[in-house]
Amino acid sequence: MSKQGKPLGKEKDKPSCAGCGAELQTLSKDRPGYVPATALGAEGAICQRCFRIRNYNDAAQVSMDHDEFLRLLGGIASTDSLVVHIVDLFDFEGSLISGLQRFVGANPVLLVVNKIDLLPKGTNYNRIRNWVQRQAKAQGLRTVDVVLCSAKKGMGFERVVESVEQLRGRRDVYVVGATNVGKSTLINRLISDYSDLDRELTVSRFPGTTLDEIRIPLDDGKAIVDTPGIVYPSRLTELVPRGVLGALLPDKPIKPLVYQLDAGQTLFFGSLVRFDYTRGANLSFTLYTANGLKVHRTKLERADDLYAQHKGELLAPPTAEELEQMPAWTRHSLRIPRGSESDVFISGLGWIRVNGTSGAQVEVYVSKGVKVLVREALI
């Protein structure tokens, strides 16, 4: 990979932000790439949005033209490239790109599963990798390799680099994924370990940080290309106000919570999700969610009144004001098959492991559009 210290950014005449890839402009603060006129010609310039993310952990709401977004993704199929698809293990089904082959054509796909550092200590990674392979195959994703890693902690990073080097040949490498799966963090690791580039992509908890294609030159004339994150409104993390993201996105290994429930009991995850155990024998349920997220147990018969009286207060986050910004709840009725080892997966929240094989009936209430499903148990 390049040691030449070439500038980080798109290979085009117009200047682009070294942090998110957006074309720099001085006309509108509400559009991607805004910079004051005095900063426009500066070397390694970053847009005002990236500046605020890096220095104040704040990001202005900006939008990317949808047609341009599809053009960037759809253009991969016409290239001869290695495609690195990064997914978030904590939100696997929510971050896996459905219909990926439609975007990448015949190009090989390396599946990089990020954020394994969030799994509880003592997790068997071989079993996790086997689980990922089964799930990817069931989703119709054809992969040439699967690598588990933590870009943040550096776990498994050498294996990622080895796979990229072995598989790419003399081709470009396109890095694709949903928002907030760690694409920019992983690429920054590549930059710091394998090139002399002194710029970094902007990294934050905010979805959609990368706004345009960013090319990182390699020594053979090819490049690693960071693409914008695909926004899936089926993830709870895309629907909550920004102030709630910190409660949903874990930054330390998960400490599972175990609840022993009888049919007719309810768990509230703040005011974000309601989980009713409606039918079945006494069972234990293991919760794999962010450690700081408050869980409240009550009887099913009291659940409606409790929510009506205490949403946004005892049941928080979000606050009552933040809750008004979110879509209303919809109900998902789920059957846990007898004899199965299953998770109830809620995209953006985590998952609930059903301990036991006697079967059960549960209902999940969450913002309309959020992906909820029963899957083979991850752990």
Rank of each mutant, 00 (worst) to 15 (best):
E213A: 14
L239P: 03
I254W: 04
K255P: 00
L293H: 10
R274Q: 15
Y288E: 00
K255Y: 06
Y277R: 03
S234A: 15
I230N: 05
H296E: 14
T266S: 15
D220A: 13
L236A: 09
G280W: 02
G243F: 01
K252G: 00
R235I: 14
K294L: 10
E213P: 11
V244F: 10
S284N: 03
E238C: 07
T289R: 03
G280E: 02
G264V: 08
L249S: 05
L267A: 03
G264A: 08
T227I: 14
E213H: 14
N291C: 05
E213T: 15
I230G: 02
S284W: 00
T237G: 01
V258I: 11
T227W: 05
V273Q: 06
V295W: 11
A223N: 12
F268W: 09
R297K: 15
I216M: 15
G270Y: 10
T286F: 00
V244D: 13
Y259Q: 11
P228G: 06
F275W: 11
P250C: 09
R297M: 13
R279S: 02
T237C: 02
R242N: 12
K299D: 10
K294I: 10
L300D: 12
L249K: 11
Y277A: 07
R274K: 14
N282T: 04
I254K: 00
E213Q: 15
P228E: 10
F269T: 09
L287N: 05
D219L: 14
G270F: 08
E238R: 09
V231G: 04
P217N: 15
R235W: 06
G229L: 13
G264H: 06
K255S: 12
A290F: 03
G292D: 12
Y259S: 10
N291G: 05
L272F: 08
V273R: 05
D251H: 09
L248S: 03
Y232Q: 09
D251K: 11
G246L: 03
F269V: 05
L272R: 11
A263M: 03
P253F: 04
P233L: 12
K299H: 07
F269A: 09
R242L: 11
A247G: 07
V225S: 07
R242P: 04
P228I: 09
D262L: 01
P228R: 06
G292K: 07
P256L: 08
D276W: 11
L283Y: 01
K252F: 01
L267W: 02
S271L: 12
S284K: 06
G243R: 06
F268V: 06
G243K: 06
G292W: 01
